[in-house]
């Protein structure tokens, strides 16, 4: 039976993070989950915006929440970590802070919108593990990625501070998911360490160091690929190799979305999954050879 979620892609998934959306949609489709994109959604109000006006950021987020509630599906899916955080943060402010709640309600009323707080904001990882379930995912695997060593990288904003679906110190959902599609998960102690976020562009020295530390440790732990859940993390770890190499040396390892790996295991094509959009391509895998199809 098909389950439906409202879907908030966020700006990155239409730009530098296109491959995330390109892999996310077919993978969910393959699992009988339908995503309906919010009509006329706006910027979530993430990080950089919040530095200018936090209340307005919440108002931006609340328009999306109100539209999701109106759309009528029970829950809203937000794949980008920054969006996931801001949408949830806004929900918390609505519950905890009467003053912020007052502003948001007035602003929504101005455009004849309401939000009652009933639409939970979920991350795809959460839905995969807790709604779709590992068994259903395993059943859908046609090309197990046996032998592929994955460093599961969760980044910061999906586990902190609002996520309730996984452990803050040692999250496990992606580990389990990667195992379910046949990968070997390497011990990756930096799985929730910051990638440097927008600092990679604005203050390269500290920003790129954050990314470099993550790449280096993944290589040291013997990973073939880093799996990520966030467009900014993917961009930082994938797009700045050249700059990192100039400063500290070569730490070449591909970084892909977890949905891209799932898509591969489900038998979808590399191009279909946006894998050609990465700067560091994944090595061809024996398990992906046509001979292995159908096992």
């Amino acid at each position: 039976m098909t389950t439906k979620y409202s879907y908030f892609p966020g700006c990155s998934l239409k730009g530098i993070g296109r491959a995330y959306e390109e892999s996310l949609l077919p993978v969910f489709r393959a699992l009988d989950v339908e995503l309906e994109e919010l009509e006329d959604w706006n910027c979530c109000g993430a990080t950089a915006y919040m530095a200018v006006d936090e209340v307005k950021a919440c108002v931006l987020a609340s328009r999306n929440l109100a539209m999701a509630e109106k759309l009528g599906h029970k829950e809203l899916l937000a794949p980008c970590s920054a969006c996931y955080l801001v949408l949830n943060k806004t929900k918390h402010y609505l519950e905890d802070s009467p003053s912020v709640r007052g502003v948001i309600q007035k602003a929504l009323a101005e455009v004849d919108m309401t939000y009652s707080g009933n639409t939970p904001v979920r991350h795809p990882l959460d839905v995969m593990i807790n709604n779709v379930g590992l068994d259903a995912i395993k059943k859908r695997v046609v090309r197990p990625l046996t032998g592929l060593k994955v460093a599961p990288y969760y980044g910061c904003q999906i586990v902190r501070p609002y996520a309730t679906f996984d452990d803050q110190h040692d999250p496990q959902t992606m580990d389990r998911l990667m195992e379910a599609i046949g990968c070997t998960v390497v011990h990756y102690p930096l799985k929730t360490r910051c990638c440097g976020a927008s600092l990679t562009g604005t203050l390269p020295e500290p920003g790129l160091l954050c990314s470099k530390i993550l790449l280096e440790e993944a290589l040291k732990r013997g990973a073939d690929v880093i799996a990520t859940v966030c467009p900014l993390c993917q961009f930082n770890l994938d797009g700045y190799h050249h700059n990192i190499k100039k400063r500290w040396g070569d730490f070449r390892i591909p970084t892909v979305y977890f949905t891209q790996l799932m898509g591969l295991a489900f038998g979808l094509g590399e191009r279909e999954l946006g894998l050609h959009r990465g700067f560091i391509p994944m090595k061809p895998l024996p398990a992906l050879a046509p001979a292995a199809v159908g096992t």
Partner: peptide, 12 residues
């Protein structure tokens, strides 16, 4: 304040 990348590690 500008180096804070909002990773929320301190907060939790």
């Amino acid at each position: 304040i500008w180096l804070c990348a909002s990773c929320y590690h301190c907060t939790v």
